[in-house]
Amino acid sequence: MSTVPGLGIVKGMTLTLRRFFQPKVTVQYPEQAPSIPPRHRGRLQLLYDEWGALKCETCFQCAMACPIECIDMGGTDTKDRFHVHWGPAEQYAERRQELALRRSGRPVPDQEFVSFDPVDTSALDAILEDEEHDPARMLSILERTQAHYGYLPVAAIKHIAHATGAWYADVYGTASFYGHLHLEPPTRHVIGVCRCPACSLAGSGAIRSALESALGVPLGGTTPDGSVSLEPSDCHGENGGAPWVTLDGARQPGITAAAAVQLARSLTGAATAGRA
């Protein structure tokens, strides 16, 4: 402690005031990159093993573990075709198996995609070949696949994901987003009910509940025997003062709740009879 009371405090205050005008040491990180010494061990590098294969198995565990998503991967998939970003589990599981085989010295078989519900993929392969395995043409691929199979089987979606390099989740998301793409086998008849305010005022609500009780399924469902599905449809504001109800896409003008029930009963009856 200095002999003059308060001198220590004054010295400290002088120092902080001098620092106030000094150049600052902060490194404004994203704009101003810090100088990383060449020996720094924190760099990301991909190494090759003695068999010449990348040690990185593209397992994406580093990318998934990275809390700020600064790790990403790019490159080609195992067929040397498309750009890969970290994606579906089924892809990297295969790749790991392939690499393991290669290391062990055993012959690497051609990847035969086997799903739990196999479909004949030759036609799909033709479609994919035609579309150049381009994930950007996903909608077209899916539409043509549906035109061929009648719906989109899971195995086909998996095959598309595998072949185009897109995530399964992406393909599935595309398929489930569009109303005209179906993930389930088609039913024989579709009854559509519009739920817009105009149709509700005109009485579509009563028709809808009548149909739901008659068919025993909620809106958007399919009867257990697969004969009729009840789906929301859209009148596009052109209902003309009457509820908009369609049967297989065709408008049923002037329909009432009783008529709708009768229609539903006839369809289920016909379907049951037909099937029996």
């Binding site: 402690m1 200095s2 009371p5 308060g6 001198l7 220590g8 405090i9 010295k11 400290g12 120092l15 902080t16």
Partner: peptide, 18 residues
């Protein structure tokens, strides 16, 4: 040396720690 002038002789610091 500069940084220690902030505290070494500061009356408040000395009284609190001595």
């Amino acid at each position: 040396d500069a940084n220690t002038t902030l505290l070494n002789e500061n009356e408040i610091f000395v009284r609190r720690t001595r």
